[in-house]
Design a protein around this nucleic acid. Sequence first.
DNA 1: AGTTTCGGCGCC
DNA 2: AAAGGGCGCCGAAACT
Length: 563
Amino acid sequence: MTDRWALAPAEDGGVEIAPLGRDGLPAGPVYREADLAGAVRGRPEVARWVWRSTAEVYPRLLATGVRVERCYDIEDAETLLLGHEGRHGEPRSAAAALARLRGGPVPPDPPQRSAEPGAQSSLFEPQSVPLPLADLVEVYADQQRRHDATAHPERMRLLTAAESAGMLVAAEMNRSGLPWSAEVHRQVLHDLLGERYAGGGEPRRLAELADEVSAAFGRRVRPDLPADVIKAFAQAGIKVRSTRRWEIESLDHAAVKPLVEYKKLYRIWVAHGWSWLQDWVRDGRFRPEFVAGGTVTGRWVTNGGGGLQIPKVIRRAVVADPGWRLVVADADQMELRVLAAISRDPGLMEVAGRETDLYQSVSDRAFSGDRDQAKIAVLGAVYGQTSGDGLKNLAALRRRFPKAVAYVDDAARAGEEGRLVRTWLGRTCPPAAGVGDDAAEEAGIPQDEPADSPAGGEWAPGYASTDARARGRFARNFVVQGSAADWALLLLAALRQACAGMAAELVFFQHDEVIVHCPEEEAETVVAAIREAAELAGRLTFGRTPVRFPFTTAVVECYADAK
DNA sequence: AGTTTCGGCGCC
DNA sequence: AAAGGGCGCCGAAACT
């Protein structure tokens, strides 16, 4: 068995490599070569490269045009395994894992660096000390045993493999970048915001709106300062707690309209305006740094440029190269389909076995055809809504799809009680999640009474504290959002394989949406590949269920035309 | 003066 | 209509 090889970069720029056996231990000699990329390029028969960190190794390979089919990221696997073992807070570096194995002092993890505008994405992780291959392999072999110790070893193996595949995709997307027309972007900014004035102050349209707001209040008010706005409303006899749009919008005051408009445009200006363009777009590409596995739920994040928060109006600037197309694909009601798959609720699976509008089908069964009510109920079930119509609608949902609602209710209870909660593949929620970022807070049931308990005793005696309820909401959402992330990783892995023989490149991924940049003549092949990858991911992740995972796809030259 | 937190809002 | 989950980013405010 020489289909998987370990790889460890050395400090001198060279590399150690060795074939591995089934037990994860070396099955042959350790080779030392001077050139990392050459060592990999020269061994196309290797099916999976085992290395400490994809972010450390793979950008260097890509820089010399070398792609790999599969990898196993030891530090990512360590994170997932530690989580599964209920040891979220422990250091996750390979060096720490080795120290735990040998009983030595465990080094803390190096601090995470953050991205800088325009900087090339991390070619190295300079604070990491290279680990000799023999040490790396020791950690890897132990991780194989730890996979076997989980409740569902085959799922855990799939999870670590899927996340490693996601890291390959992320590195490749970081290299390709999202096609971006600075010219179109500037045109959009000009249309929305008007001319820029010398000196870098507000553009014309914002200045006008600020004047309108001031005029409506009868004094100078800066609409970008919440404290100023709250004071101005108070002087006009209107008490507001904040200047959030939903709170402001319904007020009867002449300042509301220009104020709301100002806030909308101000956001575009500061977050995706001319300076953003200057900082993040180079040579026709927007390059946020995609980070796979950046959150506890398994969703990705981007480092820099707000890559996962591109406003709809700005998507006009995402334009394919001449002769190329963007295949934009969006999973239809993914979270509800995932809930069906993980809960195995017969009724919901039957509904999710169709490609038609899922919310309409749910409402036909539980809400007399009122689609909006069905959607509110489902979102309430998944997000843990605590008041309003959601609760009433949740009851109707529970009657019709009892197993599905029970699944998220159970997760919420487990979260409240500080028990571990897992996604379908075994990604595990930290027991204290949902109460801020105090990772040190250990598992356990808070004993305090809720601070906001009404005098009438709306909460039953001994009801969970505010913190515990926050943990419950987090855990409730975690099983759905996290299992959806599991599935999405398998989707990406399958789609990446399908694109391997083509010019097509994955250039964007946002939770349930992918964009592939490809020559026009490949577009229809890519569309088919996405549909196949989605169904394959569904089977691999959740086993054989009736649940389908349809996508809405569009072949366009401009992202904004996709919806 | 430099760093952290807050308020607000963009996306899913 | 309002409110639940996950993120990142910006400037201002609050802190050291």
